[in-house]
Write a protein that binds this DNA or RNA. Structure first.
Lengths: 231, 231
DNA sequence: GGATGTGAAGTAGTTCACAGCC
DNA sequence: GGCTGTGAACTACTTCACATCC
């Protein structure tokens, strides 16, 4: 046990993006009192084929039961392990406007090991107020140690905030500002851009790529004929 | 001119997701007073290879200049045409909490032909207030005609809202609730899930897929060595 | 019987490498 | 010289089809 070995073989990018969806489905069934689900059902709910589901899950090891599908509890756990949900990590959020507030108050954002470490803003009206159990600090304060920095400021301020975060030794950024960021090698930046989603939807509507056009990453979930409702 | 022909050949899904990024880069340069950009520069800023950029843009027709790159103005226009930015379309937003408010007030959400048609909520405190120039209506009101419905309600309410929107003949939904939706065939649902972004970031950090791990759709933009700052 | 897990085949997307043009 | 645009090679992902096991 020299190096902390990966517990699964390397997963493909599309697979990684789908696993959280499968996990949510599994949890929904578990909450509904059901305890088994098969790849067909997962596929319909996630908007992908049953084969894709099996291929994805096979990458986490063989824990399905032939003839009976997957135990929702085990399924959920295995996905959690693969994605590293057992590890906790700190998140700082910069920019406590509507979006920042929406994120930190959302029951869906800071989950799976994410822990809110600190909030920052530049607006004196906002600084000092309590949001999501944290007092908002001035951006001029030292940045708290964290693993991930979330940027929810206007585009014009995004780069300087990114510089601050990188300077504070944060090497993973989630940027909600419509602004391409320049960061040193070794720092990962993921962009979330709402308008792009709308644009993709409209492209398909305009070009009649049709009802079945969608299909990648966030676009998971063009409904299939018999999609089942999560109980 | 029988059928309204597509003005470009069919674009691949990854290409469609990258075009808005290129367009933003082009606009940034245009604002900065520059008027030419080459595939290498676009690639560095977007976090993809120069070849990918050229392949993507070649799909829109040949408008680059050999030896000199692309005219940022033309580039921006061509992308706009390909994505159908000349067409206007109506958007209704259901759920005017922090997130809904952040979206409609964002200078980056309702752009490129999107027009806000109406806002809905169920909270009496919110109904009747003005947000983004619109009076928030009760969800019990008839849904205004629109092309796209945006769902920003809690997960538990998302399905019934989707049903309302589909019933109002809206066949493109953008769902921000962490809830898989059941809709009739012919309706496109795109999911935007903030927590998935964090989970993907963490997977790569945990598994040392390393600085260069990222790379699809929203994950565009792992910084490259000499990424240039948009002027 | 019924569903998983997986080689093999197929498809889509990316990258190489260079001819063509400015 | 420099950069685009693209056939050809490659790589990655998905789907088929079926042997395998409960």
């Amino acid at each position: 046990m020299a190096t902390p070995r990966l517990r699964t073989r390397k997963l493909s990018e599309p697979t990684i993006a789908r696993l959280p969806v499968y996990q949510r489905i599994a949890e929904g069934w578990a909450r509904g009192g059901l305890n088994r689900i098969d790849s067909q059902q997962i596929g319909e709910l996630a908007g992908v084929t049953a084969t894709t589901v099996r291929r994805d899950l096979a990458g986490l090891g063989s824990f399905g039961t032939r003839g009976a599908g997957y135990d929702v509890k085990v399924l959920s756990e295995r996905i959690g392990e693969a994605l590293g949900h057992d590890r906790e990590y700190d998140v700082v959020v910069v920019g406590i406007g509507n979006l920042g507030r929406a994120l930190v108050n959302s029951s869906n954002f800071l989950i799976r090991g994410a822990r809110l470490a600190a909030l920052y803003d530049v607006d004196p009206e906002v600084i000092g107020t309590r949001v999501a159990g944290q007092v908002v600090r001035p951006l001029s304060d030292p940045i708290a140690p964290a693993t991930v920095g979330v940027i929810c400021v206007p585009a014009a301020a995004a780069q300087s905030v990114a510089d601050r975060l990188v300077g504070a030794d944060i090497h993973a950024l989630l940027n909600f500002a419509p602004q391409v960021l320049t960061v040193p090698i070794g720092t990962a930046v993921h962009y979330v851009d709402f308008s792009i989603e709308l644009q993709i939807l409209m492209y398909h509507l305009n070009n009649g790529t049709g009802p079945l056009g969608g299909g990648l990453l966030h676009s998971l979930g063009i409904a299939t004929p018999s999609a089942l409702r999560v109980p």
